[in-house]
Amino acid sequence: MNDTILDPDGARERLAAWKGRIDKLAADTQAMSARLQEVRVTVQDPAGLAVVTIDSTGALVDLRLTDRVQRTTPDAVAKVIMETLGAARSELAERSQEIIADTVGVASPVGQAIVQNMAPQQHGGQAPERSGDDDDGFDVQSMLRR
């Protein structure tokens, strides 16, 4: 039989190390969540027709039109608004990636799960299915839903 399995001191050390990793992950995840929720992005189109502001989920929270829209067809204004909204969502994705990289890391299982789940919110689609299990054997997805 393997003596390291039955070694109480070794088991305590492994458990303490695992708890330390979980505590750090929880703290990093909370910091990331707080920073992500604060993000707002404002983008103006190059022609100066519209300024859009979106929140951390990619939802439009403000739209300002300049007097230039009076000299532009409604279809062109709609196109500009949609393109500017897309540019804002792209900037939101970049900022979100930076925040994730700074806190939990984009290569970590938690970071990857969050990136996958954020993309559909920012682009209006559904999240792809993912197992959410990492190497430590806990379900990242269920932890993030709490």
Rank of each mutant, 00 (worst) to 15 (best):
A127T: 14
E13Y: 14
K24T: 13
E129S: 01
A113L: 05
D55P: 10
L36S: 01
L6N: 10
D62T: 02
L36N: 00
A17I: 06
A59L: 10
V80K: 00
A17W: 06
G86T: 09
V110A: 10
D62Y: 01
A50K: 08
D133M: 06
Q97A: 11
G137L: 06
V69F: 05
E13N: 05
D136Q: 01
D134P: 04
A107G: 06
V140E: 11
A119N: 12
D45E: 07
R12M: 15
A17Y: 08
L36C: 00
P8Y: 06
E98R: 09
P128G: 06
Q116K: 04
R35V: 12
F138G: 00
E91G: 00
L60H: 09
A50F: 13
A101H: 08
D133T: 03
T72F: 05
A27L: 11
Q97I: 10
R146F: 15
A93H: 14
Q112K: 13
A50P: 06
D139I: 06
M1Y: 11
T103G: 02
I54G: 02
D55V: 09
L65C: 05
V104D: 13
N117P: 04
V140Y: 11
A47F: 15
L36H: 01
V43A: 01
R145D: 15
P120Y: 15
V80I: 07
A76Q: 10
M118F: 14
A59N: 06
N2Y: 14
R95P: 06
D102E: 15
F138R: 01
M32Y: 11
V51G: 04
A127W: 15
A119C: 08
A11L: 15
L65S: 02
L92T: 07
S56E: 15
D75E: 11
D75G: 02
S131M: 04
A119D: 15
S90D: 14
D62R: 00
T29I: 13
E94H: 01
G137R: 01
V39P: 00
V115G: 02
R12Q: 14
Q112F: 13
A88P: 13
D23R: 01
L6P: 08
